[in-house]
Design a protein around this nucleic acid. Sequence first.
RNA 1: AGCGGGGUGGAGCAGUAGUAGCUCGUCAGGCUCAUAACCUGAAGGUCGCAGGUGCAAAUCCUGCCCCCGCAACCA
Length: 474
Amino acid sequence: MDKKFYITTPIFYPNANLHLGHAYVTTLCDVIARYHRLVGDKTYFLTGSDENAQTVIQGAIKAGEDIHAFRDRMVEGFAALFKRLDISYDQFIRTSDEQMHWPGAKRLWEKMAAAGDIYKKEYEGLYCVGHEAFITEKELVDGKCPDHGTVPERTKEENYFFRLSKYTAPIKSKIESDELEILPQSRKNEILALLDEGLQDVSFSRPKAKVPVGIPVPGDDSQVMYVWCDALSNYITALGYGRDDALYKEFWPADVHVIGKDILRFHAAIWPGMLLSAGVPLPKRLLVHGLIRSGGKKMSKTLGNVIDPQELLEEYGTDALRYYLARHISPFEDGDITREHFKEVYNADLANGLGNLASRIMQLAQMHLSEGTRPEAVGFPKEYTEPLEQFEVNKAVEYVWQCIAALDHKITETQPFKVVKENPEQGKKIILELTQELYIIGRMLNPFMPATNEAIKKAVVENKKPENLFPRKD
RNA sequence: AGCGGGGUGGAGCAGUAGUAGCUCGUCAGGCUCAUAACCUGAAGGUCGCAGGUGCAAAUCCUGCCCCCGCAACCA
């Protein structure tokens, strides 16, 4: 296979530490990216941070830090978590990066302006700082913003607008025809329903006085770009759009943008509209995942059901967390995680399942085989590749665990531990087969559990029983 | 209000018309290479409720109830 594959995560606000939801989407992307590398696709995996937002500025103020220092510190934290999660991203784009990001964002704006789709409009209304947007009278509760509990300011603002309304029909047709494919189907239906109502033009800039760190609007230094052109553009600027086209030519359009359902409309309406306006090809696919809840409820500090990825990483390790996220959280629907369920799954699937299987096979191998083995490379079964091509990561993992169960069963059936005493040659033959099958299982784990894949490979090749891969937890 | 997702044995899920399935947990038996693990078997469900269509419904239609999310530090 000699295809290219470009995958992106959303970009994250460096205003607080990343939580399990961020860990999930990033891990999901990593699994998909590693799979594509495994089957030989030329893969590019992008992640990054959305730094020019009001909420980030507020975070810095709250922390009493300089905005630049604050963002750098938060982004370092992102990198540390991603490293711990074994995220194999090729690039981390920061929208504050004037060299990497800004030229492309400006180029995109200019293209849209040249198409006649950017216009200036004066707007007077109630501005909520928390929203970083105008809100309507109707939305107010006791004269305050219901979300932020603050009294909005009546201000007059001159903004640039993007003529998104013009693109309702073309966007709809691209989505209906799956030229821009939206997965799962339910999300596609949802966005088509929205498109039926027609899209409104969207505000595309803010006065620089209000958002001091944004990207200047080309030809108007008094305004900075609002989030759409500022942030969504990262998917192409990272590749060098407007700067150096080599990667861009190779990898755009994206094969998949992985996003949460909360940001679906931005990616399925505004972003395609922008690209259509600028004459840039649309991404091929949006993979819209759900939310991770805990105990059936959204995680929130108030409810006290937040689970920090760091906590799980420390207690169970990187691959255990990756395993849980890949197997037990659906890529398409809301998922659930509790400490109790995590432990149950860890013990059942990893300690008793995979870990124990590796121990029993390698114990036999170490005792009875004189040297390690390395099975010939074979293709992957379709029960494994087909789900992965469709991003059904959980189904692919389930298949691997079926293989694990089958191998446990095979040991019971063939009784190599007994046979080897009565007929050493026959026993060794069985044991050799078992180690080779274990190796193949390890290889299939590569996208989900890269370190475990390595550990199993090493054990088989060196004919040495590994340390407990996943010690039981009580 | 509106929009979206969901309600299947103790837990988590699969199953869009034709004998209700998987994993975990529980119980009994087996095995001994292994991390008190592994294998086999069993118990356990009127598939949210009420109607309707069909020879046949978890699965289609109608109404209702309940949970979750869409607004908050938030993918």
